[in-house]
Each structure stands twice: as C-alpha cells, then as structure tokens.
Design a protein around this nucleic acid. Structure first.
Lengths: 144, 144
DNA sequence: GTGCCACTTCAAGTCGACTTGAGGTCAAGA
DNA sequence: TCTTGACCTCAAGTCGACTTGAAGTGGCAC
C-alpha cells in the first residue's frame, strides 16, 4: 500500500489540507511519517476522516470525537453515548419540525399581516415560552 | 402603560440585559427614551423579543431578522422567504433523522466493535459521501 | 542543475452572537 | 445626606472549527 501525501488525502476525502493539519494537531488523525518535510498518510486515514464526518454530522465536537479513538487507533464509543446523542437529535428534530410547520402555515396564511395570522401568533408564543431556560441552542449555518 | 427599565425587560423576557443592549445596538429593538442614563422600554419590546426568538429558532441570523422589521416597527416578512426556510429545515430534519436512526442502530447492534456493525458502516459511508461539497453545516451547541 | 510549486511552520484572523470587565453615573431608599 | 446597586459605555474576550498569510523548504520533472 502506497502512502498518501496531504494533497492526495485532501483530494480523496474532500477535506482541505489546512484542515488535515489542524486535525493532526488536535490528535484526530496521525501521519505515519515524513518525506522530507512532507507528511505521509496511511490509507486508513480516509476511513478515520469518514468517522470524524459522522461524528460532526451527529453533533459531536471535535474534542468528543477525539476521545472516541483509543491511543492505538481503535474505536471506543460508548453505546449509551450514542443513545444519548440520538435522543438529543430527536429533541432537535421535534423542535425543528414544529418550527417548519409553523413557517409553512404562516407562509400560506392570507391574513394581511403576519401578526394577524393565528398560527403565526401561536409559534411566536411557543418560541417565547422556550426562550426562558434555553438561552442558546442554535443551528450552525453554511459558511458564506 | 408604564415603561420598563432594562432589568424589568430582562426578567420578563428571560433575555439578559447585556443582550438587550447588544440587540439595541444592532437595531433589533428600540428603547423609547431614557430616565437619566437608563433606557426605558415600551411593553411592545416583549413581543418583539418573542419574534426575534422565533426567527433565531428557525435559523435566521440576527441580520436577517433585523431586515424583517420596517423602520416604522412593523413586520415585513417575505412569504417566499418563509417557504425557503421551511424547506431548509426540512432538509436538516431529514439528515438528522437519518443520523439518529443510524446512531440507534449502532447502539443496539451487538457486533463486538462498531466498525463490524453493518448499519454503522452504512452511516459512515453515507456521511463520507456528504463531506464533499458540504464542508460546513453544523449544529450549534448549548453553552457549557 | 534548476526552477516550480506543493508542501512546511506559526501566528493571527474570521464568523456570529454574545459576555465580561473596568471604570463611571445616578435614582431612590434608609 | 449618604450609600447602594442597578444601570451606563466602550473595548476586549470567548467559543469552535477552521482559514489565511507570510516566509521558508525541498521533491521532482525537465
């Protein structure tokens, strides 16, 4: 198996070289050596990057993900942790679903102004009730 | 109607005073005057804050929300914008749902290691496919 | 051998939404 | 009158995940 240089890994994984260096610095991936200054990666790094992508998509932080890898390079994922994250996703999904329905209603409603639309007023009240005690759950947005 | 001082608004809305000052600076809310140095707010600010909360929950940025208010204090929400946001939420919901199901499967699976679990491998592959062209959609997390 | 350009390091910048801190003001209750 | 503490301003800091820039190195095709 030939080793890959950083540009090759970037091309195959879709992850920018700057990010790969950043991930290495954070201990999320490892290079198997150098050719001169240049990092060399094993093919296994591609699967590792895929795992990192799953973790990110599921809402884990990079630090949490780092803790799921053993120093030997294996995986150590607590099943309870998966369940907990699934439950968390569930809650988020329910909230987003309610919001989506509210938005669709409001968009369809023919009241002259939104504040005269009963369903719009309903989601405003619901959201207002949620503010207290839930100061800052947010959706990350696409860059640019 | 008595006007409210910033502490009163904070207490009733659950939004910290520092945030209220920040929102005023950004043009999201307005104070109706001062008593000495202190801001005075109209009761209407509470509804306005509720609207801001809805917008945030639906995934709009503060800047986008600011643009939904007319200089006169009214609402000017493009219905197509609501539909677009609802569609966006839909896509997010679908993705999160797939991820949640994958996590639940992986948690329930009795394979000795996760990488030997077919459903886990499936979500890893799916996520890997998503990395390309979608570099950075993320879930905001609760603060501490 | 030589030139190019993909790589290297390290520090600093970015984004959004706020928070925090220092240093100051002042309305109102005792 | 004095004290208190809630308010004020303005600048800077925070968080997570990267990106960007400057300045330098060296592998490899010609």
């Amino acid at each position: 198996m030939k080793s890959l240089d950083i540009g090759e890994v970037a091309k195959r994984s879709g992850v920018p070289a700057s990010t790969l260096r950043f991930y290495e610095e954070k201990g999320l991936i490892r290079s198997i050596g150098r050719r001169g200054l240049r990092r060399l990666f094993d093919h296994g790094v591609l699967e590792r990057l895929a795992l990192i992508a799953v973790g990110r998509a599921a809402g884990f932080t990079l630090e949490e993900i780092a803790r799921m890898f053993t120093p030997q390079g294996g995986l150590r994922i607590d099943r309870r942790m998966l369940v907990a994250k699934a439950d968390e996703l569930d809650a988020t999904i329910r909230k987003l679903t309610a919001m989506r329905d509210g938005l669709r209603h409001a968009a369809a409603c023919r009241a002259p102004s939104h504040m005269e639309c009963p369903s719009f007023r309903r989601i405003v009240r619901a959201a207002a009730a949620h503010v207290i005690g839930e100061p800052n759950r947010k959706l990350r947005r696409n860059r640019h």
